[in-house]
């Protein structure tokens, strides 16, 4: 019970920290939308004159983009930045002496950030969706349940990928290059900017085995009802396996990072 409370405290502190800087908070939120505006218009132009592409019509596409925006807002740049920051400012030393599991603490903090930012993004997104009158929500409660589960999987998967890339900061001086690479890879292979069903066969096969697709493609296709119900269970099983694998991979990298820290003295 006490252990749980310890991590809950991290979640609450993170909410406070995220909202601590007023202007930055709102700008972080706005910046989530900006890159999607370009993508949105690009797709709109693509869909004028084509009613169905890659098995999706314009309505599907809008719903897809909405979920893509929402899932990417749950873990924004600021959470990603956190891990690398504490490493390059040397603050990691302080965090290491605390009696908490670093990985779990980071996860709790990311949850806190996600609550503070994601809630607002979701609210704005839904409002926007209602205003334009698009996005057909899942029809049945079961579909909703699957969708929410998929969002949870998405969150954990993305956290682990971000965290693992963050840990590489131990071996580099600035986190920027890696974080760009991470963003490029996740955006592309998760289907954030272009649905996986558009990919040519070989590329889709690659994307299907990688963990990234759980971040956007799975929740988004469930939301718009394009993932056949028969495949949902198998998909979740694969995602769960990936989460377990990534969780232990992160532990392993952490182990090596600690060896490096103790040699170089942080």
């Amino acid at each position: 019970m006490l252990t749980f409370q310890k991590y809950l405290r991290h979640v609450l502190c993170a909410i406070q920290e995220t909202t601590a800087y007023r202007a930055s908070y709102f700008i972080n939120i706005v910046s989530q939308f900006v890159s999607y505006i370009a993508i949105f218009f690009l797709w709109r132009a693509v869909y004028t004159g084509n009613s169905v592409i890659g098995g999706m019509d314009w309505n599907d596409m809008q719903g897809y983009l909405l979920i893509s925006l929402f899932t990417s807002a749950l873990i924004s740049g600021s959470s990603e930045f956190r891990v690398s920051r504490s490493i390059w400012t040397g603050n990691i030393a302080v965090e290491l002496v605390r009696p908490v599991d670093y990985q779990k603490a980071n996860f709790s903090i990311t949850v806190g950030n996600g609550i503070a930012e994601g809630v607002l993004v979701a609210a704005i997104g839904i409002l926007f969706a209602l205003l334009i009158g698009f996005a057909v929500p899942p029809a049945s409660p079961a579909a909703w349940l699957c969708f929410l589960l998929a969002v949870a999987f998405s969150f954990i998967t993305k956290f682990l990928i971000v965290y693992i890339f963050g840990l590489f900061t131990f071996w580099t001086t600035g986190g920027m290059g890696l974080s760009w690479l991470r963003r490029g890879l996740t955006d592309f292979f998760s289907g954030a900017i272009i649905p996986l069903s558009f990919f040519p066969g070989w590329l889709k096969a690659a994307a299907d085995v990688l963990p990234f697709r759980g971040i956007v493609s799975v929740p988004a296709t469930i939301f718009i009802g394009r993932l056949p119900p028969s495949q949902i269970l198998a998909t979740f099983a694969v995602e769960a396996a990936w989460i377990a694998a990534l969780w232990w991979l992160a532990r392993l990298i952490w182990h090596f990072a600690m060896r490096k820290v103790t040699i170089h003295g942080g």
Partner: peptide, 30 residues
């Protein structure tokens, strides 16, 4: 903006995405 993480410059940087496609794709305000 005195926060350690400042998304504003990155956001402005990202707006260069608009330059990657024909400007006529976008609505007039954009």
């Amino acid at each position: 903006l005195t926060s350690f993480y400042n998304a504003f410059p990155l956001m402005v940087h990202q707006m260069a995405d608009f330059a990657k496609y024909p400007t006529t794709l976008f609505t007039e305000p954009i």
